[in-house]
Simulated scan of single mutants.
Amino acid sequence: MPNLELLSMLSPHGIDPLKPWGGIPSITQMDVASMLSGCSDCQTSLLLAKYAHDDKARDKLTRKWHEKAMSHGEKDQDRFIVMYDAVLIEYLGGDVCEYCDGISEVYIKPSGARLTLNEIITLDGVLNLVDGKVEPCGRCTGGRKAWSYRKIARLMQIERLSPNWIRRVEDLRGELRELERGAVANMKPFD
């Protein structure tokens, strides 16, 4: 089973792909621990915070994130930490993209019309893409809408982000995406 499907099993709202719709999920804490055994401590915290909504993992990740922010030695440390927090909060639980319904892919009919997730899943949970194609969403990052620079600036209590601050925000977003990509690549297969 691909690692991205394994991640969906960590979500409290996820579907057990090994069983038909309904029923009791069969994944145990030992299964999760086994799947994540190849990940670093930071990668494990990111996956558990984002997909399992684990508060302890989120707190641990936040502490590591703050340590990283403090290591830069910025003169405006408080704003720097607020920026780090804003990017992390956005990444872990930002707004779900309305265009792709939070799955980061769009299903397109040959006519060019977009299909919703409900239109392509049959009652037995099978994707029905007979004549359609799958494309990356393009309007979001990983199924979630990125916060605007204006929103991040308001949190930092400044009027607007300078090009330097915007570059830093984008670098942090990229670091989190890379951390998650590495975590997915390091996950062990589910037996």
Rank of each mutant, 00 (worst) to 15 (best):
L48P: 04
A49I: 11
K50H: 09
Y51L: 12
H53L: 15
D54M: 10
K56H: 08
A57C: 05
R58M: 13
R58P: 00
K60G: 00
K60P: 00
L61C: 10
T62D: 05
R63F: 02
W65N: 01
W65A: 00
H66G: 02
E67Q: 11
H72W: 07
H72Y: 10
D76S: 01
D76F: 01
Q77M: 08
R79V: 06
F80Q: 01
I81V: 15
V82D: 05
D85F: 03
D85I: 06
V87I: 15
V87F: 14
L88A: 10
I89Q: 15
E90I: 11
G94L: 07
D95C: 03
D95P: 07
V96C: 11
V96A: 10
V96K: 11
V96P: 10
C97A: 03
C97G: 02
Y99R: 04
Y99N: 02
C100H: 05
D101Q: 12
D101C: 08
G102D: 00
I103D: 00
V106W: 03
I108P: 00
K109A: 13
K109M: 12
K109F: 06
S111V: 07
S111Q: 04
G112P: 04
G112R: 01
A113M: 00
A113I: 01
L117M: 03
L117K: 07
I120N: 01
T122G: 03
L123Y: 06
D124S: 15
D124C: 09
G125L: 00
L127A: 12
L127K: 12
D131C: 10
G132C: 12
K133G: 10
V134M: 14
V134Y: 07
E135C: 12
P136I: 02
P136H: 13
C137Q: 04
C140A: 05
C140S: 05
G142P: 14
G143A: 11
G143I: 13
G143E: 02
R144S: 11
R144E: 02
R144H: 12
A146K: 05
S148A: 11
S148P: 04
Y149S: 09
K151L: 04
I152R: 06
I152C: 07
I152G: 08
L155G: 08
L155V: 12
M156I: 07
M156S: 08
Q157H: 13
I158W: 08
